[in-house]
């Protein structure tokens, strides 16, 4: 192989390495809880639930869905990408080198900025009543009920987009 060809191969390898880096093998759950489903759709049966900060292996992607696996429990299935981030979520300051990592942009520190402590203080200062806000947060129809609602109305699930 001539030197010039070697240069081309190395340059190509560098470019490919850059492209591979754009598809991380792990992602973190960025919402309070999200469901793991049997198919890449909201029609898919619920196999289990992931929680905020859970770090999952991404096995493949299909449209807006990722097939993930939580190593700790072996739970595996499809999760909507809206619930995942490429960043690592650090839930407490006790874990690892948080300060250094948090400033790198690859790690998000849970509870940074506006958080529960701020909410408690805000509620107290403004004498705000959160009763309905808390109740509202619990208004979540069961996935089967949503599916039945769509079917009875001759409608499509969001996953069928």
């Amino acid at each position: 192989m001539t030197l010039s060809r070697l240069c081309v191969v190395v340059a190509l390898a560098l470019t490919t390495a850059g492209l591979n880096a754009a598809t991380p093998k792990q992602m973190s759950v960025v919402v309070k809880t999200t469901q793991v489903r049997s198919t890449p759709s909201y029609l898919g049966g619920v196999l289990g639930t992931l929680s905020y900060g859970d770090r999952v292996d991404v096995l493949e992607k299909q449209n807006d869905w990722a097939r993930v696996k939580l190593a700790a429990t072996g739970l595996s299935g499809w999760t909507n990408l809206a619930a995942l981030t490429e960043k690592t979520i650090v839930l407490s300051s006790g874990s690892g080198n948080v300060g250094q990592n948090a400033s790198s942009g690859e790690v998000a520190l849970a509870g940074k900025g506006f958080n529960e402590q701020i909410e408690t203080q805000y509620k107290q200062d403004g004498k705000l009543d959160y009763t309905w806000v808390d109740a509202m947060g619990k208004l979540a129809p069961a996935p089967e009920a949503v599916l039945a609602f769509l079917t009875a109305g001759g409608l499509n699930s969001g996953g069928a987009q």
């Binding site: 905020y52 807006d64 909507n80 809206a82 619930a83 499509n156 699930s157 969001g158 987009q161």
Partner: peptide, 14 residues
């Protein structure tokens, strides 16, 4: 049903 069909079907608290 509508939120699940949006481009952002999941938020932190839903």
């Amino acid at each position: 049903s509508l939120a699940e069909a949006s481009d952002r079907p999941e938020t932190f608290g839903g």
